[in-house]
């Protein structure tokens, strides 16, 4: 079975998703303060790698544990909803079809909630 990574369109699509996602996040006052403009490129690269691994890319290194990555942050439910909403929109911009988008969102949401399980 092809991985979600392949079906979504591989690295090319993920780059588009992440570009779009960060465009949105940095403009959203609810979450923009979490993103340091100086480190944006690095954060985007990290995000690309993380999504690639989560979706099952055969090439990526194991991704950082979500729990570890967000340890120092105070994150509210509203912020989570905001980020997930932007991610879903970004997947749309990258032309990921509805069913794949549902699957991707279902996975990412689960991984997010599971980080403190």
């Amino acid at each position: 079975m092809r991985t979600l990574y392949e079906r979504i369109g591989g690295a090319a699509s993920i780059t588009i998703v992440v570009d779009e996602l960060y465009d949105r996040l940095t403009c959203d006052p609810r979450v923009s303060h979490h993103f340091d403009p100086a480190r944006l490129t690095a954060q985007k690269a990290g995000q690309c790698a993380w999504l690639a691994t989560a979706f099952g890319s055969p090439h990526s290194e194991p991704a950082t544990d979500l729990r570890q990555a967000h340890r120092h942050l105070e994150i509210s439910d509203e912020q989570v909803t905001a980020v997930l909403g932007h991610l879903e929109a970004a997947l749309g911009v990258a032309e990921v079809d509805d069913e794949l988008r549902r699957q991707a969102m279902s996975l990412i949401t689960r991984l997010w909630y599971a980080r403190v399980f």
Partner: peptide
């Protein structure tokens, strides 16, 4: 209704 950067990365490809 997408970001400029997204347009640029599409265009580069």
């Amino acid at each position: 209704i997408i970001g400029v950067r997204t347009v640029e990365s599409h265009l580069a490809r």
